[in-house]
């Protein structure tokens, strides 16, 4: 379970996340939305300790999330997929997966291939030579190699064609239902993401201005006023 209490995150003088308190179970399917600069990516990074200058507290399963110690926090059972820079372009698909698996169990490799059969076909290809959608699949598979209870994804569909967006979001739903892995995703593509998540949070100026069911957000006639 994630517990966020009075979280404030800063980049120098800029307050990106302002006094946010939340709690959610690990199996959750949650979307964090908001316009550019609303603090959604920063909030996501704070959940894995990726922001240095923070106050307040974040805990996962009772263990505190220590700022600037992403590599330790991940081992608590949190998978993190950054928006870009999320695969290693100079390594092949299989080498990428081995890098991720070396901290857990490389037998997960077969499970990753079962989940994303395309990756098995491309196992000897350099990750940098794959398409954006394929790289996103690889990035998710990398995060799954650490056997997370919950997966944090920063704009997993950014820059992808609509057909690929559907594919990626479908894969994420499957991960949630088949593996029981929770999903917390930051997305600009709100309507597509609302099909996947069951809870939605909207940030504005670093503060939570909406926290409720995804259907409730979808039903709001003034939905676009939030963004």
């Amino acid at each position: 379970m994630f517990e966020v209490q009075n979280l404030t995150a800063r980049y120098g003088p800029l307050v990106a996340v302002n006094d946010v308190s939340l709690s959610f179970d690990t199996g959750v399917r949650m979307g964090i939305f908001g316009h550019n600069g609303s603090g959604k990516s920063t909030l996501l990074k704070c959940l894995v300790g990726g922001v240095r200058d923070v106050s307040g507290a974040v805990a996962f399963g009772g263990s505190p999330i220590v700022a600037d110690q992403v590599h330790r926090n991940v081992m608590l059972g949190i998978g993190f997929v950054p928006q870009v820079q999320n695969v290693f372009p100079n390594l092949t698909v299989e080498q990428n997966l081995h890098i991720a698996g070396s901290k857990s169990d490389s037998s997960f490799l077969e499970e990753a291939y079962a989940l994303f059969p395309l990756l098995r076909e491309r196992q000897d290809q350099l990750a940098g030579d794959m398409s954006g959608g394929e790289q996103q699949m690889l990035a998710v598979a990398l995060a799954l190699m650490t056997r997370p209870q919950v997966l944090l994804l920063d704009e997993p569909t950014a820059g992808l064609a609509p057909a690929i967006v559907k594919n990626v979001l479908g894969s994420l739903s499957r991960i949630n239902t088949e593996l029981g892995t929770g999903l917390i995703l930051v997305e600009q593509n709100v309507l597509a993401a609302l099909d996947v998540v069951e809870r939605a949070i909207v940030l504005k100026g670093g503060r939570v201005v909406f926290d409720g069911a995804s259907e409730e957000l979808r039903a709001k006639e003034d939905l676009w006023a939030w963004f």
Binding site: V70, H71, V74, F80, P82, N86, N90, I99, A143
Partner: peptide, 17 residues
């Protein structure tokens, strides 16, 4: 190589750069 490619992604896999 992975660390040189990207430290953030490397840390996100539980590896200490």
């Amino acid at each position: 190589t992975a660390m040189r490619n990207d430290e953030e992604a490397f840390s996100a896999l539980g590896r200490n750069a």
